[in-house]
């Protein structure tokens, strides 16, 4: 069965001054449509590098990465933008909300770039989905951390992506709020959305169907929840 994301022999090399950093070393990774996957690992293990690669924010130094059957390696930035718009929704640790835009406008922002027609109904639907139906007119400064992250998730959902990629989405949140965000992810997954979440929080990571562990740029283990629960 072919996955929505298929990576083979993925390598990523960065340069920092004269130093060469191998962020990913020969990574094989397959993600099926509708899966909920978490990636854990110590700092510098290559989690974010892998996530950025999956999100087409970066292209591999070598190896192959196919998203929905399209080879990403060697694509131009212009084409990557199109692929991102149509397939990927991003959620960041620092939320990156525009402080002068309301929750509703922040959620609407990707529509401005994708040139899709603005649909007030769709925006309200997303607000409802992330549990902020009554907070749409608030500015980020008037929202709690959890609410801001929910706005960011709403923003990732507005273009109807096939996959949501979340980089430490609960890194700036307390445990109760983190719990709520993971519940939201589970709910979205139940609706058929594919999710990849990078996190430091082992308890939360274990709630995904699959949990990959990265160390020194390599995948060292893959735990499946069914197995984990059985042990």
């Amino acid at each position: 069965m072919s996955g929505i994301i298929e990576a083979k022999g993925l390598c990523q090399v960065y340069r920092r001054g004269r130093e060469e950093i191998q962020a990913l070393k020969n990574v094989d990774f397959c993600l099926e449509a509708g899966e909920f996957v978490s990636i854990i690992g110590p700092s510098g293990s290559g989690k974010t590098a892998l996530l950025n690669m999956l999100g087409c924010l970066d292209t591999p130094s070598s190896g192959s990465l196919r998203l929905n059957g399209i080879e990403i390696a060697g694509q131009k930035e212009r084409d990557l933008v199109k692929i991102r718009r149509e397939n990927i929704g991003f959620v960041f640790q620092q939320f990156y909300l525009m402080p002068t835009l309301t929750a509703r406008e922040n959620i609407e922002l990707p529509l401005l770039f994708s040139k899709k027609k603005r649909s007030a109904k769709r925006i309200e639907e997303v607000l409802q989905m992330v549990g902020l139906a009554d907070r749409g007119d608030h500015l980020p400064g008037q929202l709690s951390g959890g609410e801001m992250q929910r706005v960011a998730i709403g923003r990732a959902l507005i273009n109807d992506p096939k996959i949501i990629l979340a980089d430490e989405p609960t890194g700036n949140l307390d445990s109760a709020t983190s719990e709520m965000i993971f519940c939201l992810f589970s709910e979205l997954n139940k609706r058929g959305l594919t999710l990849v979440v990078v996190t430091h929080n082992l308890d939360l990571a274990r709630r995904a169907e699959k949990m990959y562990t990265l160390r020194d740029g390599r995948i060292v283990s893959c735990e499946e929840r069914a197995c984990a629960e059985g042990m």
Binding site: G55, L57, E77, R78, V81, R84, R85, I88, G89, F90, F92, Y96, L109, P110, F113, S114, R155, A156, N159
Partner: peptide, 9 residues
């Protein structure tokens, strides 16, 4: 962030 959510150059 804008580029990640679909903005082009």
């Amino acid at each position: 962030m804008m580029k990640a959510i679909g903005a082009s150059g």
